[in-house]
Nucleic acid binder design. Structure first.
Length: 213
DNA sequence: CCAGACGTTGTT
DNA sequence: GTCTGG
DNA sequence: CCAGACGTTGTT
DNA sequence: GTCTGG
């Protein structure tokens, strides 16, 4: 799965290469973080009137129809296998897809010794960032609109399966335009979710994940 | 038809 | 063990 | 997702 | 909003 990640480097230049014409939210401020956790506001790229748009959204999806009170942390992951059908995700999957730039994500391997878990950081040496597939939504509060996102997951591929059985969906640069397209015909998108077509990842084993900034 | 739930993970 | 906050 | 807290009474 | 159970 994907419940923690890193964004140590500013993704702006990378995003400008991948998305010529990308616009940045004037409110966008990059905060490096080696331990991004749910509820933080983090950079995503979404489609704003046909233009790739980088802005900050809160991690933990709160669907637009959520009732008042206690949406809590929201939903941090959505299974790619069922995202097109689940009532909670269907509308966002059709109309509000996004990309989450990260430079690593964490998975914890259970050791069987007590409840000890060893953290691993996965990343790709050949590319400074990974672009994760996400969906977002907006929830109208009394005090303004809260925009949130969730990261899609799929089965682990061979490069991480010994650590954990799920991983985030990582999109190739050739796929990201189609992912962001304002196209409600999502029938082709499930081709992006095949774990064995996702990149092989490099890893580092850690003693501890540095606490959130 | 309306009312009520709507998720993932991991763990049991 | 289980919940909450980040 | 993990890390950290988790409670009451009475007395100072 | 949209699906499921009754």
């Amino acid at each position: 799965m994907c419940g923690r990640y890193t964004i140590k480097k500013n993704p702006s230049d990378y995003l400008r290469q991948v998305f010529p014409g990308i616009q940045f939210d004037p409110a966008f401020k990059f905060q490096p973080n080696e331990n991004v956790c749910p509820t933080l506001e983090e950079p995503v790229v979404l489609n704003a009137n046909g233009v790739p748009f980088c802005t900050l959204l809160r991690w933990g999806l709160i669907p637009s129809w959520s009732r008042e009170e206690k949406p809590g942390t929201g939903i941090i992951n959505a299974r790619s296998e069922t995202v097109a059908e689940k009532p909670s995700f269907k509308a966002s999957f059709r109309r509000k897809r996004c990309l989450v730039p990260v430079d690593g994500f964490y998975e914890w391997k259970k050791t069987g010794v007590g409840s000890k878990k060893i953290p691993y950081r996965f990343y790709r040496k050949s590319d400074p960032f990974l672009l994760l597939a996400g969906i977002w939504d907006e929830w109208e509060r009394p005090m303004g609109i809260l925009r949130t996102f969730a990261i899609l997951t799929t089965a682990a591929n061979a490069s991480i399966a010994d650590v954990h059985d799920r991983m985030p969906v990582i999109l190739d640069k050739k796929q990201v335009d189609q992912w962001l397209a304002r196209n409600e015909d999502t029938s082709q998108l499930s081709n992006f979710f095949d774990p064995e077509k996702l990149p092989a990842l490099d890893r580092e084993e850690l003693d501890k994940v540095k606490s959130a900034v």
